[in-house]
Amino acid sequence: MYAPQTTTMAPEPMMPFPALITDIKEEAPGVTTYALEFEDTAVRQSFTFQPGQFNMLYLPGIGEAAISISSDPGQPETLLHTIRVAGNVTQAIARLDVGDVIGLRGPYGSAWPLAHARGLDIIMVAGGIGLPPLRPAIYHIIHHRQEYGQVTVLVGAREPADLMFPGEYDAWREQGIEVLPTVDRADDSWEGRVGVVPMLFYSLRPDPRKTMIFTCGPEIMMRFVVYEALARRVPKERIYLSLERNMKCAIGFCGHCQFGPTFLCKEGPVLSYNQIEPFFSVEEF
């Protein structure tokens, strides 16, 4: 006379979709790019993402990790993820070959504010593995070059061999993007700048009325980027950072990625400095 004795279930939102590894490219010591394609045609063809968003990569029996998408948003059928070996999951991914299958779900999180940045100059500041989450934004700008003003990419790495995507800098330059790499420690092969990334600001004369900053890298580096940008009167609401915290679910249920009022998986990872300022310098927050 009443409803059935058990209830019905909607699909679990954390279920991954199998995705094939179609290419593997070593970028730097311990850093590798994996090209992934969803096995299911409908899933593959309906997937789109915005620069700055991330996916959850899953290996059954090992676990799941949040990894930014590093590829061209104009070609979402093949998704690149540039991964540094850091924990269990990334170590296990490092043992995979072309033709292996991993679980993939996404995209999640906020994106670089590229619509907001139209007509403005953009300074991107990347430290180490911070460049891959910015690369989709660089591709977007190349596809829509006339919509943006001066675009400068400041890239830092510990050593020359650690630089991300050095083979692409000339192609970006040909599209009117200034690329300034620097390394903390040079070797004999290195003829470029030496020093930490925020120092590259000293060679720039940004116009604070029309400059936007996108930065991704170690938090200590981003603190100095914010400092240098504010010193040049770039307003807080035009400084964007991509933050990293522990993530388990990516959909706001597990609580791990909280940064004060913010769930980095939902409102982040890309946030403006005025959103996070009260908490950014609190120790152990």
């Binding site: 058990t6 019905t8 679990e12 991954p16 679980g103």
Partner: peptide, 23 residues
């Protein structure tokens, strides 16, 4: 249990984790 996976050759299948719960 949120879901289960079963390995099949190099790939795997994904199934729902549990029976619908009681009322």
């Amino acid at each position: 249990t949120l879901f289960r996976t079963r390995r099949q050759d190099k790939s795997f299948t994904v199934e729902t984790g549990e029976e619908p719960p009681p009322k």
